[in-house]
Computed example of a mutant assay.
Amino acid sequence: MLIDSHCHLDFEQLAADLPGVLARAEAAGVTGMVTIGTRVERFATIRAIAEANEQVWCTVGTHPHNAHEELHVLTKDLIGLSEHPRCVGIGEAGLDYFYDNAPREAQATGLRRHIAAARSTGLPLVIHSRSADEDMANILKDEAEKGVFPFVLHCFTAGRELARTGLELGGYLSFSGIITFRNAEEIRAVAREVPADRYLVETDAPYLAPIPHRGADNEPAFVRHTAEKLADVRGLSLEALAAETTANFGRLFSKTGVGA
């Protein structure tokens, strides 16, 4: 049993054939998935997907690319929306200095509001971090001093220092199809060292399709390829890796009831 801990079923590439996407996932042994919020103003759309499909859960949040467009969204708003029974996490929020689509101050403000919501609700924060290792580590450490909060560094592509900081603060790392790419040895090295109880698998579909589908639209069924590569990296059978990542998912995303 595999669970895709991060995908975007509301994005056009997947929404256009959602029944097919879900059927192919089931055929590949993917029994659950989380469709991740990127704009609070679109929460009703992803909530409806989760309501209509028992194998799908959702989160609520504002992607750092959109942070400046949703500065009116306060922590209390995130908390209120997260009370929906199919909403199992906060985010994704974070820092993206690679594209810098939003002012960095707005990204940091949004991230701290999402952290506060995760701390208040106990729901995990899904963190997007790209080319912002130092600032992300500093914010995580600063916020942890105010009180612990659960989180996952999704689609992990950062360096060892951010991995170490995240793990020391109780966070999880999630690995995407990037781990199958030829030039991803540094990420594979981190994945090799992560404790067995602190890692997840994901697609980030419709992006980052793993080999052998690189260049195509990604979908939850393809998380199997990521899991197979990660199992090889960690010296495990696919079955053992599926058991570990599913148990980890259930522990972090406890509202799903997986493994309960």
Rank of each mutant, 00 (worst) to 15 (best):
A196E: 15
F151I: 09
V194L: 13
F149C: 02
M136F: 00
P150V: 05
I139S: 07
R164Y: 06
G122Q: 14
T165C: 07
K146Q: 15
H128W: 01
R192D: 03
V152L: 02
R192T: 03
A163S: 07
Y172H: 10
A158G: 15
R182H: 15
N183L: 11
G110R: 05
A132D: 09
G159T: 05
L123R: 03
A117W: 07
Y172P: 00
I178F: 10
L169I: 06
V152Y: 05
T157N: 11
D197T: 14
V148E: 15
K146A: 13
N183V: 13
E134R: 13
R160H: 13
K141V: 12
I139R: 04
G147D: 04
E168Y: 05
I187H: 12
V126D: 08
R182D: 15
D133G: 10
I127R: 04
E143C: 08
R160W: 15
A163I: 07
M136I: 04
A117R: 02
H154K: 01
L153Q: 03
L167Y: 09
E168K: 13
A144P: 00
T121I: 11
E202V: 10
H114Y: 09
A163Q: 02
P150S: 10
E145A: 15
R192P: 00
V190S: 05
E168Q: 14
F181R: 11
Y199W: 07
D197V: 06
A158C: 14
